[in-house]
Write a protein that binds this DNA or RNA. Structure first.
Length: 835
RNA sequence: GCCGGAGUGGAGGAACGGAAGACUCGAUGGUCUCAAAAACCAUUGCCCCCUAAAGGCGUGUGGGUUCGAAUCCCACCUCCGGCACCA
């Protein structure tokens, strides 16, 4: 048993055995407590990269740990297999997207298996399989039937490179670029399908049922952008209603003009003949300018007077109506009341065009004057110039929590001039994509019956295989000679299929359910499986999905709930299946960081800083790569790759191998102290590794095992290595390392005669009595500085410690015979003397 | 501007308000070797010093609370991420 560590041989052998034994097959077992651990599913781009390893191997280690803790763990994997790269490959290299995708899946499955993770390979779900997308389409129809899906002609974001529209969430950055390909998007007016995610805005703002990182909660909250205020109806002199949304109804008396967005439908009709030329020119110019130009915050405001006037409903004042592009048609009603004294933007506009600035909130201690003030005052004060509301305090609080807002809103409601209102930044989810490689939208347009969903028994609407790609990138579904022509399901007359496919985020919004029973053909998932496994207990993945996938999937679960999809799900173990399981798909979320190239930049082929995991596995073995992923970084932060750093993991595993396989020394005299020191370290390590894995602190868990290993290494050739304490240490070290490095530990476990499989063993039990220190060294501080230390038995009482400390030569010297002012003894911690 | 997060040795990173720098990499010196690699041993925050002892200084900056602060509070600075003419 002195052969050297040969990871490649060991890993292949155990992987084969595990697979043959179905060691990682997870099945419903009501007698056992379930644990659903989930890592974000990969897109089959061709090869597994370092990022996949970094995301998945710690996630796997934790799932393995939970299994050893006694949970029935489900840790599935699959592929988010629809998407544009497959089509790009088809156009560029004349490979059919299906062929390209499934070849990649095959290759990546091999790579994933090389990771040695505890994935249940019998639950693999692939979103481009007809068995899968049948149910993606079924959900679409359900949503349509429940009023959650609608088709609408509207100006939408279009990526000219990807040749498709995008959801608002998929447009990023100041230059409004495509999240996938970085190309700035353009606006197009198209007839598109939307999901009513806005209907769930408030529901989605409720994070009380989930333990998600504050960062994600903040990002989603930001994204939804809820603001409270009032809906107030202004009218033009000619009686046209001009409703506005304002968060500051308490400043209504300070409205000295109104502004409409250039796209506002009433602009043309209210403009007076004298102003028509100027307004037309302005509107035309605004339409030509891109959103990026228009939305640049630093840009100077421009606008044109329409010649028309509105009546302020609170005081019947006549105020001018302007058109300006700083007002957006997409938010609120596309028109605002302008209160220059208390709003920065209105102030800038008013000064430029010499419009009245009237103060209606006076702060304490200074006197604002509309004519002379240099900037708007958005702060707190008392209402003035506001009729019966004068003197009402206006605070910094938002919405009805602000007494001035509350008083005015209630009065508006009583008067019928307005009402409480909430506005959101969130837009409905645009899911139409003008692409081939996606799930076809299962809708048919009939000239007689209108829009008709494909009946359930005709699902899935299959993608045709006989397609042709043109270099223009136009969807082959549109160009297909016959595919889109079908009889209307209602009247049987010739009708036309929807040729758009669905946003692939739709597929990934419900994959955690499909994993439960990927073969199920009577429902999206088997009710028994759902009743046992739901919800996902622990989800892990990247932060980049905060306002896309992670928001969509929360919406999706709620929509499923409201469509009755969970009607036959009865939690088998309500203790671990919170009532929130029908609202929230994932109870806990943890975001890992990103692994960068050695140069500190994002890994990319063009930079040439890509580290290939296949090569590393070939060179060092899977266990070493896994170990390095988990020891060298804080998981939530990630960081640059260091090709030297992996040596640390190589040494750890070699040392572990050597310690376990070394011949035992002859028994002999063993110092009791040494024996207890080893047992103490062993038990302290159990606790540290346990606590660290639970808190995702994999690096410190491995550091703790390394400390144990270092201690054992020193004792390896002494008679201590022939004692039961040593055997306990060896067993413990292997069990603690099993989640991190599953193959080497399985091999060594077998060699020391442990029962197969180490991965089915119970997590070692930590005994606090053994872990407790017998002797402790206490630092002795004088005025907060450590001057000496004393070593005493752990149970020494305070008085004795105090006496010992004061008797120290060094302390006596520093006290110079004077009595100390104060002596603080913290048992087990330190002695602090104040002079 | 608003909302999150982060600033600790040469690098990654440890530290329930109680010994700053665990563990790892790197570096330096040594052992082994014809040599190199590997392995092993030792040193490794900075200043002072031949060395050591003994000091002093050190967790982005400046204050504060405390016997005691990387950690708590206040005010800043820098970097990263999200949102932003959103009424």
């Amino acid at each position: 048993m002195t052969d050297t560590y040969n990871p490649q041989e060991i890993e292949a052998r155990w992987q084969a055995k595990w697979e043959a034994d179905r060691l990682y097959r997870s099945a419903v077992d009501p007698k056992q407590v379930k644990y659903y651990a989930l890592t974000m599913l990969p897109y089959p781009s061709g090869d597994l990269h370092m990022g996949h390893w970094y995301a998945m191997s710690p996630s796997d280690a934790r799932a393995r740990y939970m299994r050893m803790k006694g949970y029935n763990v489900l840790f599935p994997i699959g592929f988010d297999a629809f998407g544009l790269p497959a089509e790009n490959a088809a156009i560029k290299r004349k490979i059919h997207p299906k062929k390209w995708t499934y070849a990649n899946i095959e290759n990546m499955t091999r790579q994933l298996k090389s990771m040695g993770a505890m994935f249940d390979w019998e639950r693999v779900a692939v979103s481009s399989d007809p068995e899968y997308y049948k149910w993606t389409q079924w959900f679409f129809v359900q949503f349509f039937k429940n009023g959650l899906a609608y088709k609408k002609m509207s100006p939408v974001d279009f990526c000219p490179t990807c040749n498709t529209t995008l959801a608002r969430e998929q447009v990023w950055g100041d230059d409004r670029h495509c999240e996938r390909c970085q190309t700035p998007v353009i606006k197009k007016n198209l007839d598109q399908w939307f999901f009513k995610i806005t209907q769930y805005a408030d529901d989605l703002l409720d994070f009380s049922q989930i333990e998600w990182p504050e960062r994600v909660v903040a990002m989603q909250t930001n994204w939804i952008g809820r603001s409270e205020g009032a809906h107030v109806v202004f009218t033009t002199e000619h009686g046209d209603e001009l409703p506005v949304f304002t968060t500051r109804p308490d400043t209504l008396w300070g409205a000295t003009f109104m502004v409409m967005a250039p796209e506002h439908p009433l602009v043309a009709s209210i403009t007076t003949p004298e102003q028509k030329a100027a307004v037309d020119a302005y509107v035309t110019e605004a339409a030509r300018a891109s959103d990026i130009e228009r939305e640049a915050a630093e840009r100077e405001k421009t606008g044109v007077f329409t010649g028309a006037y509105a009546i302020n409903p609170v005081n019947d004042e006549r105020i001018p109506i302007w058109v300006a592009d700083y007002v957006l048609m997409t938010y609120g009603s596309g028109a605002i009341m302008a209160v220059p004294a208390h709003d920065e933007r209105d102030f800038a506009f008013a000064r430029k065009y010499e419009l009245e600035v009237r103060v209606v909130i006076q702060p304490d201690g200074e006197k604002l004057d509309g004519a002379s003030m240099a900037e708007a005052f958005p702060g707190a004060g008392k209402m003035v110039n506001s009729g019966q509301f004068d003197g009402t305090p206006a605070t910094e609080e938002k919405g009805l929590a602000n007494p001035a807002v509350k008083a005015v809103t209630e009065w508006l409601e009583r008067q019928g001039r307005g009402h409480y209102a909430v506005n959101y930044r969130l837009r409905d989810w645009l899911i139409s994509r003008q692409r081939y490689w996606g799930a076809p939208i299962p809708m048919i347009t009939c000239p007689e019956c209108g829009i008709v969903p494909v009946p359930d028994d005709q699902l899935p609407v299959l993608l045709p295989d006989d397609i042709e790609f043109t270099p223009t990138g136009e969807s082959p579904l549109k160009l297909h000679p016959t595919w889109k022509t079908v009889p209307c399901p209602q009247c049987g007359r010739p009708a036309e299929r929807e040729t758009d496919t669905m946003d692939t985020f739709m597929c990934s919004s419900w994959y955690q359910y499909r994993y439960l029973s990927p073969q199920c053909d009577t429902a999206p998932f088997d009710p028994e499986e759902g009743s046992y496994w739901l919800p996902v207990d622990q989800y892990t993945g990247g932060i980049e999905h905060a306002t896309m996938h992670l928001m969509y999937t929360r919406f999706f679960t709620r929509a499923m709930r409201d469509c009755g999809v969970f009607a036959n799900i009865k939690p088998m173990n309500p203790k671990v299946q919170p009532a929130s399981m029908f609202n929230e798909p994932m109870t806990r979320l943890y975001n890992q960081g990103m692994i960068l190239g050695e140069d500190g930049e994002k890994m990319s082929k063009s930079r040439g800083n890509v580290i290939d995991p296949d090569n590393l596995v070939a060179q060092y073995g899977t266990d070493t790569v896994r170990c390095y992923m988990m020891s060298a970084f804080k998981w939530d932060q990630g960081g640059p790759w260091n090709s030297m750093g992996i040596k640390g993991s190589v040494r750890l595993l070699n040392d572990m191998w050597a310690i376990v396989t070394a011949p035992k020394p002859a028994p002999g005299q063993v110092d009791d102290k040494d024996m207890w020191a080893l047992r103490r370290k062993t038990h302290q390590t159990i606790k540290r590794v346990r606590d660290d894995i639970e808190s995702f602190s994999f690096n410190t868990a491995l550091a703790a095992v390394t400390e144990l290993k270092n201690l054992m290494q020193k004792a390896q050739k002494t008679p201590l290595a022939a004692t039961p304490a040593w055997d306990e240490a060896v067993r413990t070290m292997l069990l603690l390392m099993a989640p991190f490095t599953p193959h080497i530990t399985e091999e060594l476990w077998a060699r020391i005669g442990g029962p197969y499989s180490i991965h089915q063993q119970q997590w070692p039990i930590y005994d606090p009595a053994i872990a407790a220190e017998e002797e402790i060294t206490l630092p002795v501080q004088i005025n907060g500085k450590v001057r000496d230390r004393i070593t005493v038995p752990a149970d020494t009482d305070e008085e004795t410690i105090k006496a010992l400390a004061l008797d120290l030569e060094k302390v006596k010297g520093l006290l110079e015979g004077k009595p100390p002012k104060k002596v603080i003894v913290i048992p087990g911690r330190l002695v602090s003397i104040v002079v």
